[in-house]
Design a protein around this nucleic acid. Sequence first.
DNA 1: TATTGTTATACTCTATAACTATA
DNA 2: TATAGTTATAGAGTATAACAATA
Lengths: 171, 171
Amino acid sequence: MPGRKRMARRHAARARGASPGRAGLKKVDLGHLPNLIGYAIRRAQIAVFQDFQRSFAKFNIRPIQYGVLTVIESNPGLTQTQVCAALGIKRANFVPLLNELARRKLAERRGAVDQRANALYLTKKGKLLMRKLRELNKMHERRLAAGLSGKERAQLIRLLNRTRNAAQSHP
Amino acid sequence: MPGRKRMARRHAARARGASPGRAGLKKVDLGHLPNLIGYAIRRAQIAVFQDFQRSFAKFNIRPIQYGVLTVIESNPGLTQTQVCAALGIKRANFVPLLNELARRKLAERRGAVDQRANALYLTKKGKLLMRKLRELNKMHERRLAAGLSGKERAQLIRLLNRTRNAAQSHP
DNA sequence: TATTGTTATACTCTATAACTATA
DNA sequence: TATAGTTATAGAGTATAACAATA
Protein backbone atom coordinates (compact mmCIF):
# COMPACT_ATOMS: atom_id res chain seq x y z
CA MET A 1 0.00 0.00 0.00
CA PRO A 2 2.18 2.84 -1.24
CA GLY A 3 -0.61 5.42 -0.96
CA ARG A 4 -0.04 8.07 1.66
CA LYS A 5 -0.13 11.75 1.09
CA ARG A 6 2.11 14.18 2.80
CA MET A 7 -0.10 16.47 4.81
CA ALA A 8 -0.08 15.12 8.34
CA ARG A 9 3.03 17.10 8.91
CA ARG A 10 2.56 20.80 9.61
CA HIS A 11 0.20 20.06 12.46
CA ALA A 12 3.22 19.59 14.68
CA ALA A 13 5.73 21.59 12.70
CA ARG A 14 8.78 21.35 14.92
CA ALA A 15 8.47 18.78 17.63
CA ARG A 16 11.10 18.92 20.37
CA GLY A 17 14.85 19.04 20.22
CA ALA A 18 15.10 17.49 16.82
CA SER A 19 16.25 20.14 14.43
CA PRO A 20 18.12 18.50 11.60
CA GLY A 21 18.16 21.77 9.71
CA ARG A 22 20.24 20.68 6.77
CA ALA A 23 20.23 16.91 6.82
CA GLY A 24 23.48 15.02 6.57
CA LEU A 25 25.64 17.19 8.77
CA LYS A 26 24.86 15.53 12.06
CA LYS A 27 26.87 12.39 12.83
CA VAL A 28 24.51 9.47 12.92
CA ASP A 29 24.91 6.80 15.56
CA LEU A 30 24.56 3.34 14.09
CA GLY A 31 24.07 1.78 17.51
CA HIS A 32 25.35 -1.77 17.70
CA LEU A 33 25.10 -2.36 13.95
CA PRO A 34 28.83 -1.83 13.30
CA ASN A 35 29.54 -4.65 15.70
CA LEU A 36 27.34 -7.16 13.90
CA ILE A 37 28.70 -9.75 11.50
CA GLY A 38 25.60 -9.65 9.35
CA TYR A 39 25.73 -5.89 8.97
CA ALA A 40 29.41 -5.92 8.02
CA ILE A 41 28.78 -8.67 5.48
CA ARG A 42 25.84 -6.86 3.93
CA ARG A 43 27.66 -3.56 3.55
CA ALA A 44 30.75 -5.29 2.18
CA GLN A 45 28.65 -7.34 -0.20
CA ILE A 46 27.04 -4.26 -1.71
CA ALA A 47 30.38 -2.53 -2.22
CA VAL A 48 32.00 -5.64 -3.68
CA PHE A 49 29.04 -6.21 -5.97
CA GLN A 50 29.25 -2.66 -7.26
CA ASP A 51 32.95 -2.97 -7.99
CA PHE A 52 32.23 -6.20 -9.84
CA GLN A 53 29.51 -4.50 -11.86
CA ARG A 54 31.81 -1.69 -12.89
CA SER A 55 34.56 -4.13 -13.70
CA PHE A 56 32.43 -6.44 -15.85
CA ALA A 57 30.08 -3.85 -17.34
CA LYS A 58 32.05 -3.87 -20.57
CA PHE A 59 30.96 -7.48 -21.16
CA ASN A 60 27.59 -7.19 -19.47
CA ILE A 61 28.28 -10.02 -17.05
CA ARG A 62 26.90 -10.22 -13.51
CA PRO A 63 28.45 -12.14 -10.63
CA ILE A 64 26.00 -15.01 -10.84
CA GLN A 65 26.62 -15.36 -14.56
CA TYR A 66 30.35 -15.46 -13.97
CA GLY A 67 29.77 -18.19 -11.41
CA VAL A 68 27.67 -20.26 -13.76
CA LEU A 69 30.11 -19.91 -16.63
CA THR A 70 32.97 -20.89 -14.33
CA VAL A 71 31.22 -24.00 -13.05
CA ILE A 72 30.18 -25.13 -16.52
CA GLU A 73 33.69 -24.59 -17.82
CA SER A 74 35.17 -26.58 -14.95
CA ASN A 75 32.60 -29.36 -15.31
CA PRO A 76 31.54 -29.82 -18.93
CA GLY A 77 28.36 -31.85 -19.25
CA LEU A 78 26.86 -30.94 -15.91
CA THR A 79 23.08 -30.85 -15.67
CA GLN A 80 21.16 -27.75 -14.72
CA THR A 81 20.23 -29.25 -11.38
CA GLN A 82 23.87 -29.93 -10.60
CA VAL A 83 24.94 -26.39 -11.41
CA CYS A 84 22.10 -25.13 -9.26
CA ALA A 85 23.12 -27.31 -6.34
CA ALA A 86 26.73 -26.21 -6.62
CA LEU A 87 25.93 -22.52 -6.63
CA GLY A 88 22.85 -22.45 -4.42
CA ILE A 89 20.47 -21.38 -7.18
CA LYS A 90 16.86 -22.55 -7.42
CA ARG A 91 16.26 -24.60 -10.55
CA ALA A 92 13.33 -22.41 -11.51
CA ASN A 93 15.49 -19.29 -11.38
CA PHE A 94 18.25 -20.93 -13.33
CA VAL A 95 16.16 -21.29 -16.47
CA PRO A 96 16.01 -17.63 -17.56
CA LEU A 97 19.60 -17.22 -16.44
CA LEU A 98 20.79 -20.02 -18.70
CA ASN A 99 18.45 -18.90 -21.44
CA GLU A 100 20.30 -15.62 -21.64
CA LEU A 101 23.72 -17.28 -21.69
CA ALA A 102 22.46 -19.55 -24.47
CA ARG A 103 20.92 -16.66 -26.38
CA ARG A 104 24.27 -14.92 -26.26
CA LYS A 105 25.91 -18.11 -27.50
CA LEU A 106 28.15 -18.38 -24.44
CA ALA A 107 26.77 -21.70 -23.16
CA GLU A 108 24.55 -24.35 -24.66
CA ARG A 109 22.27 -27.21 -23.69
CA ARG A 110 23.03 -30.58 -25.25
CA GLY A 111 21.33 -33.91 -24.79
CA ALA A 112 22.23 -36.16 -21.88
CA VAL A 113 21.84 -39.91 -21.46
CA ASP A 114 19.03 -39.13 -19.06
CA GLN A 115 16.65 -37.68 -21.57
CA ARG A 116 15.03 -35.50 -18.98
CA ALA A 117 18.26 -33.64 -18.41
CA ASN A 118 20.43 -31.25 -20.35
CA ALA A 119 24.20 -31.49 -20.47
CA LEU A 120 25.68 -28.01 -20.31
CA TYR A 121 28.77 -26.81 -22.17
CA LEU A 122 30.48 -23.56 -22.95
CA THR A 123 30.58 -22.66 -26.61
CA LYS A 124 33.84 -21.66 -28.22
CA LYS A 125 32.70 -18.07 -27.85
CA GLY A 126 32.00 -18.71 -24.19
CA LYS A 127 35.45 -20.14 -23.59
CA LEU A 128 37.09 -17.20 -25.31
CA LEU A 129 35.07 -14.77 -23.25
CA MET A 130 36.02 -16.57 -20.05
CA ARG A 131 39.67 -15.86 -20.73
CA LYS A 132 38.97 -12.15 -20.67
CA LEU A 133 36.62 -12.43 -17.72
CA ARG A 134 39.22 -14.24 -15.65
CA GLU A 135 41.61 -11.37 -16.24
CA LEU A 136 38.99 -8.84 -15.25
CA ASN A 137 38.22 -10.89 -12.19
CA LYS A 138 41.85 -11.02 -11.23
CA MET A 139 42.00 -7.23 -11.22
CA HIS A 140 38.70 -6.99 -9.39
CA GLU A 141 39.98 -9.34 -6.73
CA ARG A 142 43.20 -7.38 -6.47
CA ARG A 143 41.24 -4.21 -5.77
CA LEU A 144 39.19 -5.90 -3.07
CA ALA A 145 42.27 -7.24 -1.35
CA ALA A 146 44.21 -4.00 -1.75
CA GLY A 147 44.21 -3.38 2.00
CA LEU A 148 44.86 -6.97 3.02
CA SER A 149 47.96 -9.07 3.27
CA GLY A 150 47.88 -12.48 1.65
CA LYS A 151 47.40 -14.05 5.03
CA GLU A 152 44.56 -11.71 5.91
CA ARG A 153 42.84 -12.35 2.63
CA ALA A 154 43.00 -16.10 3.20
CA GLN A 155 41.73 -15.71 6.71
CA LEU A 156 38.86 -13.50 5.62
CA ILE A 157 37.66 -16.25 3.31
CA ARG A 158 38.17 -18.85 6.00
CA LEU A 159 36.21 -16.88 8.58
CA LEU A 160 33.42 -16.21 6.08
CA ASN A 161 33.13 -19.91 5.33
CA ARG A 162 33.00 -20.73 9.01
CA THR A 163 30.29 -18.14 9.52
CA ARG A 164 28.38 -19.58 6.60
CA ASN A 165 28.63 -23.09 7.99
CA ALA A 166 27.54 -21.93 11.40
CA ALA A 167 24.52 -20.16 9.96
CA GLN A 168 23.61 -23.17 7.87
CA SER A 169 23.87 -25.60 10.72
CA HIS A 170 20.89 -23.92 12.35
CA PRO A 171 17.90 -24.93 10.25
CA MET B 1 12.44 -13.38 -23.30
CA PRO B 2 11.50 -16.33 -21.13
CA GLY B 3 9.83 -18.15 -23.99
CA ARG B 4 11.59 -21.34 -25.09
CA LYS B 5 10.04 -24.73 -25.36
CA ARG B 6 11.78 -27.94 -24.55
CA MET B 7 12.11 -29.86 -27.76
CA ALA B 8 15.59 -29.15 -29.07
CA ARG B 9 16.84 -31.91 -26.88
CA ARG B 10 16.30 -35.41 -28.14
CA HIS B 11 18.02 -34.59 -31.40
CA ALA B 12 21.33 -35.27 -29.71
CA ALA B 13 20.13 -37.49 -26.91
CA ARG B 14 23.40 -38.42 -25.25
CA ALA B 15 26.33 -36.41 -26.41
CA ARG B 16 29.77 -37.63 -25.40
CA GLY B 17 31.19 -38.61 -22.07
CA ALA B 18 28.72 -36.63 -20.04
CA SER B 19 26.50 -39.06 -18.24
CA PRO B 20 25.19 -37.40 -15.11
CA GLY B 21 22.76 -40.26 -14.61
CA ARG B 22 21.28 -39.17 -11.34
CA ALA B 23 22.25 -35.57 -10.87
CA GLY B 24 23.80 -34.50 -7.63
CA LEU B 25 26.05 -37.43 -6.92
CA LYS B 26 29.05 -36.26 -8.87
CA LYS B 27 31.34 -33.84 -7.04
CA VAL B 28 31.22 -30.50 -8.76
CA ASP B 29 34.38 -28.48 -9.20
CA LEU B 30 33.81 -24.83 -8.34
CA GLY B 31 37.02 -23.78 -10.06
CA HIS B 32 38.58 -20.70 -8.50
CA LEU B 33 35.33 -19.47 -6.98
CA PRO B 34 36.12 -20.76 -3.46
CA ASN B 35 39.22 -18.62 -3.48
CA LEU B 36 37.37 -15.39 -4.27
CA ILE B 37 36.45 -12.85 -1.61
CA GLY B 38 33.29 -11.88 -3.43
CA TYR B 39 32.08 -15.45 -3.70
CA ALA B 40 32.72 -16.16 -0.03
CA ILE B 41 30.90 -12.98 0.95
CA ARG B 42 27.92 -13.75 -1.24
CA ARG B 43 27.50 -17.30 0.05
CA ALA B 44 27.95 -16.19 3.64
CA GLN B 45 25.51 -13.35 3.14
CA ILE B 46 22.79 -15.67 1.92
CA ALA B 47 23.26 -18.07 4.83
CA VAL B 48 23.35 -15.25 7.38
CA PHE B 49 20.28 -13.66 5.86
CA GLN B 50 18.37 -16.91 6.07
CA ASP B 51 19.29 -17.42 9.70
CA PHE B 52 18.14 -13.88 10.38
CA GLN B 53 14.85 -14.54 8.61
CA ARG B 54 14.18 -17.63 10.65
CA SER B 55 15.16 -15.86 13.82
CA PHE B 56 12.95 -12.81 13.26
CA ALA B 57 10.09 -14.51 11.43
CA LYS B 58 8.02 -14.48 14.60
CA PHE B 59 7.94 -10.68 14.47
CA ASN B 60 8.01 -10.39 10.70
CA ILE B 61 11.09 -8.20 10.69
CA ARG B 62 13.72 -8.19 7.94
CA PRO B 63 17.35 -7.14 8.33
CA ILE B 64 16.88 -3.76 6.71
CA GLN B 65 13.92 -3.03 8.97
CA TYR B 66 15.95 -3.94 12.01
CA GLY B 67 18.64 -1.58 10.81
CA VAL B 68 16.20 1.28 10.33
CA LEU B 69 14.57 0.76 13.70
CA THR B 70 17.99 0.64 15.36
CA VAL B 71 19.15 3.87 13.76
CA ILE B 72 15.94 5.72 14.56
CA GLU B 73 16.06 4.51 18.14
CA SER B 74 19.67 5.63 18.51
CA ASN B 75 18.99 9.00 16.85
CA PRO B 76 15.47 10.21 17.60
CA GLY B 77 14.40 13.00 15.29
CA LEU B 78 16.54 12.02 12.34
CA THR B 79 15.21 12.84 8.88
CA GLN B 80 14.55 10.22 6.25
CA THR B 81 17.50 11.40 4.20
CA GLN B 82 19.81 11.02 7.18
CA VAL B 83 18.67 7.49 7.89
CA CYS B 84 19.13 6.67 4.23
CA ALA B 85 22.64 8.08 4.18
CA ALA B 86 23.58 6.16 7.31
CA LEU B 87 22.37 2.83 5.99
CA GLY B 88 23.05 3.20 2.29
CA ILE B 89 19.42 3.21 1.24
CA LYS B 90 18.05 5.27 -1.64
CA ARG B 91 15.52 7.83 -0.43
CA ALA B 92 12.98 6.60 -2.94
CA ASN B 93 13.23 3.06 -1.61
CA PHE B 94 12.99 4.21 1.95
CA VAL B 95 9.46 5.54 1.56
CA PRO B 96 7.56 2.24 1.32
CA LEU B 97 9.89 0.77 3.93
CA LEU B 98 9.05 3.48 6.42
CA ASN B 99 5.40 3.39 5.39
CA GLU B 100 5.19 -0.19 6.58
CA LEU B 101 6.90 0.56 9.88
CA ALA B 102 4.47 3.45 10.37
CA ARG B 103 1.47 1.35 9.38
CA ARG B 104 2.51 -1.18 12.01
CA LYS B 105 2.85 1.65 14.52
CA LEU B 106 6.51 0.91 15.19
CA ALA B 107 7.86 4.23 13.94
CA GLU B 108 6.29 7.56 13.08
CA ARG B 109 6.91 10.72 11.11
CA ARG B 110 6.64 13.95 13.02
CA GLY B 111 7.14 17.49 11.87
CA ALA B 112 10.60 19.03 11.76
CA VAL B 113 11.69 22.65 11.83
CA ASP B 114 12.48 22.29 8.18
CA GLN B 115 8.98 21.82 6.92
CA ARG B 116 10.13 19.79 3.98
CA ALA B 117 11.51 17.12 6.30
CA ASN B 118 10.10 14.56 8.67
CA ALA B 119 11.56 13.87 12.09
CA LEU B 120 11.47 10.14 12.76
CA TYR B 121 10.77 8.50 16.10
CA LEU B 122 9.99 5.08 17.43
CA THR B 123 6.58 4.71 18.99
CA LYS B 124 6.21 3.19 22.42
CA LYS B 125 5.24 -0.02 20.67
CA GLY B 126 8.34 0.24 18.53
CA LYS B 127 10.58 0.68 21.54
CA LEU B 128 9.03 -2.30 23.27
CA LEU B 129 9.47 -4.42 20.17
CA MET B 130 13.11 -3.39 19.91
CA ARG B 131 13.79 -4.87 23.32
CA LYS B 132 12.68 -8.26 22.08
CA LEU B 133 14.42 -7.84 18.74
CA ARG B 134 17.71 -7.04 20.42
CA GLU B 135 17.46 -10.29 22.33
CA LEU B 136 16.68 -12.22 19.17
CA ASN B 137 19.58 -10.51 17.47
CA LYS B 138 21.91 -11.41 20.27
CA MET B 139 21.08 -15.09 19.80
CA HIS B 140 21.31 -14.77 16.04
CA GLU B 141 24.75 -13.22 16.36
CA ARG B 142 25.80 -15.92 18.79
CA ARG B 143 24.86 -18.58 16.25
CA LEU B 144 26.84 -16.87 13.51
CA ALA B 145 29.91 -16.60 15.68
CA ALA B 146 29.56 -20.11 17.07
CA GLY B 147 32.72 -21.28 15.30
CA LEU B 148 34.73 -18.15 15.96
CA SER B 149 36.71 -16.93 18.92
CA GLY B 150 36.08 -13.39 20.11
CA LYS B 151 39.26 -12.29 18.41
CA GLU B 152 38.32 -13.98 15.16
CA ARG B 153 34.89 -12.43 15.20
CA ALA B 154 36.37 -8.97 15.67
CA GLN B 155 38.87 -9.55 12.91
CA LEU B 156 36.22 -10.82 10.52
CA ILE B 157 34.36 -7.54 10.92
CA ARG B 158 37.57 -5.58 10.58
CA LEU B 159 38.59 -7.39 7.39
CA LEU B 160 35.11 -6.97 5.94
CA ASN B 161 35.22 -3.25 6.58
CA ARG B 162 38.62 -2.98 4.97
CA THR B 163 37.37 -4.89 1.94
CA ARG B 164 34.35 -2.61 1.77
CA ASN B 165 36.55 0.48 1.91
CA ALA B 166 38.85 -0.91 -0.74
CA ALA B 167 35.92 -1.64 -3.05
CA GLN B 168 34.43 1.79 -2.47
CA SER B 169 37.67 3.60 -3.11
CA HIS B 170 37.52 2.47 -6.74
CA PRO B 171 34.67 4.51 -8.23
C1' DT C 1 6.36 -42.31 -7.66
C1' DA C 2 10.25 -39.36 -8.18
C1' DT C 3 13.16 -36.28 -10.88
C1' DT C 4 14.43 -32.65 -14.65
C1' DG C 5 13.36 -28.82 -16.69
C1' DT C 6 9.97 -25.48 -17.16
C1' DT C 7 6.24 -21.85 -16.53
C1' DA C 8 3.95 -18.63 -13.77
C1' DT C 9 3.89 -15.79 -10.01
C1' DA C 10 5.13 -12.86 -6.10
C1' DC C 11 7.92 -10.24 -3.05
C1' DT C 12 12.05 -7.81 -1.95
C1' DC C 13 16.09 -5.00 -3.10
C1' DT C 14 18.17 -1.77 -5.98
C1' DA C 15 18.25 2.11 -9.27
C1' DT C 16 16.68 6.23 -12.04
C1' DA C 17 13.74 9.92 -13.49
C1' DA C 18 10.47 13.21 -12.46
C1' DC C 19 7.22 15.52 -9.58
C1' DT C 20 5.68 18.67 -5.08
C1' DA C 21 6.44 21.52 -1.47
C1' DT C 22 9.38 23.77 0.76
C1' DA C 23 13.92 26.28 1.42
C1' DT D 1 18.33 27.04 -7.62
C1' DA D 2 18.62 23.27 -4.37
C1' DT D 3 16.76 19.96 -1.01
C1' DA D 4 13.23 16.45 1.30
C1' DG D 5 9.99 13.50 0.44
C1' DT D 6 7.39 11.16 -2.86
C1' DT D 7 5.65 8.55 -7.02
C1' DA D 8 6.31 5.56 -10.78
C1' DT D 9 8.85 2.26 -12.96
C1' DA D 10 12.20 -1.17 -14.17
C1' DG D 11 15.58 -4.89 -13.37
C1' DA D 12 17.54 -8.45 -10.70
C1' DG D 13 17.47 -11.99 -6.72
C1' DT D 14 14.91 -15.16 -4.31
C1' DA D 15 10.95 -18.21 -3.29
C1' DT D 16 6.94 -21.51 -4.06
C1' DA D 17 3.53 -24.16 -6.62
C1' DA D 18 2.35 -26.71 -10.42
C1' DC D 19 2.94 -28.88 -14.90
C1' DA D 20 4.91 -32.19 -18.91
C1' DA D 21 8.33 -35.42 -20.13
C1' DT D 22 11.01 -38.95 -18.55
C1' DA D 23 12.87 -42.20 -15.22
